[in-house]
Design a protein around this nucleic acid. Structure first.
Lengths: 200, 200
DNA sequence: TTGTTAACCGACCAACGGTCGCTACCAGTT
DNA sequence: AACTGGTAGCGACCGTTGGTCGGTTAACAA
């Protein structure tokens, strides 16, 4: 990149993306804490303080990656929800997509999800906005299901939280009781149909 | 503590407990990564390398605290499960106890749960043994419920994972839809009775 | 009194995240 | 052609970290 000429916004965004993806590769391999800023800079082919020209600190790289993940997942969920099928069919497909996304990015999403807890309040709020956008999509779908009689009169926010929370063991369990696909199906069946028998 | 005389195992365990609890207080306050070994040592009233006589590294303090937490939760769960009531009543009480425990130790359990993901494989296995013991208690209770007709023919391991995973948003959500108690009740009702209406 | 042992601990080490101030390049002006 | 102002880029430096090393102190047995 020539010196003296200010970068365009597009160039700047491209550089941020390149740096963040170099970071993602290292984080995938060895974890966030174990990955140094120096290593990220080297992997991105830049000097360490150049990295600080593009990210204000190490944590901002986490934020950047998680935002991209949420934007991607939210975008795909929107497409599914806009499609055909009953509420329950579409909900299953969204959770399926979510599972596939998590499985494909398994190692670093876990690590980054943990690290987002350590972000500053300010940065957590930025991330929260995107997370809420995804959550709200699911809530809207659930509320459609309540309205059309597919679902009981339940708290849509609570169902959304339970569904998303239940993804974690499906992806990360150290004691799998089947393939991730099988575990997803069992989990969804459990939450949709309930554990209790009708007469108890 | 007199020098030249080896510590008894009890003394040693007491020292470890004191150090770990000094650490827990700081971790509660500012997070694990932000708490230095020097700060922990000072809070425990010892020199930094004394701390290394009792814990092989910083991560082992996490392991120690999480093991204690799991031992406590497992012990209380055993007492509840050995008590009276239907499987479902006892399951509700166990989850209630679990919630209260999490709420009481909210800030540091989240931080430590995150940090246990970073432990060495060796240390994770130590922690896993205790976690599996707790999980197995829940699985046994659920299997009793399947046998006595309280529960449908479901995967007990999957129900256990879903229940434990569902505790996270109840405790840590940034978008509560009621008190933790109300959210717990809604979550348990949801999982026990299911989201779907009977005719869909 | 001396030698041994173990608890205790701060100086030291290498590495970290982040900053400072320097270099090189570019465009515009004189 | 030379000068000036502005920007991209970056390694030396800073203070702090986790963890180690080797010395000090105190208790005990001979």
């Amino acid at each position: 990149m020539p010196k003296g000429i200010p970068l365009t916004n597009e160039d700047r965004e491209l550089r941020r993306s390149e740096i963040a993806h170099a970071a993602a590769d290292l984080i995938f391999e060895k974890g966030f804490t174990e990955t140094s800023v120096n290593q990220i800079a080297k992997a991105a082919g830049i000097g360490k303080s150049t990295l600080y020209d593009f990210f204000s600190n190490k944590d901002e790289i986490i934020l950047y990656l998680m935002e991209k993940f949420l934007i991607e997942v939210t975008s795909r969920a929107k497409a599914i929800i806009a499609g055909e099928g009953s509420v329950i069919e579409r909900l299953r497909r969204v959770m399926q997509m979510h599972l596939e996304f998590l499985l494909r990015n398994k190692a670093f999403i876990l690590k980054l999800t943990l690290e987002t807890q350590r972000l500053s309040i300010e940065n957590q709020k930025i991330y929260q906005v995107k997370r809420y956008a995804y959550q709200d999509l699911l809530i809207e779908l659930i509320e459609q299901g309540i309205a059309d009689g597919s679902f009981r009169q339940i708290d849509s926010g609570m169902l959304m939280k339970t569904l998303l929370a239940a993804m974690s063991p499906v992806v990360y369990t150290s004691r799998p009781v089947g393939t991730p696909q099988e575990m997803l199906d069992k989990t969804l069946n459990l939450i949709l149909e309930g554990a209790k028998t009708s007469d108890s």
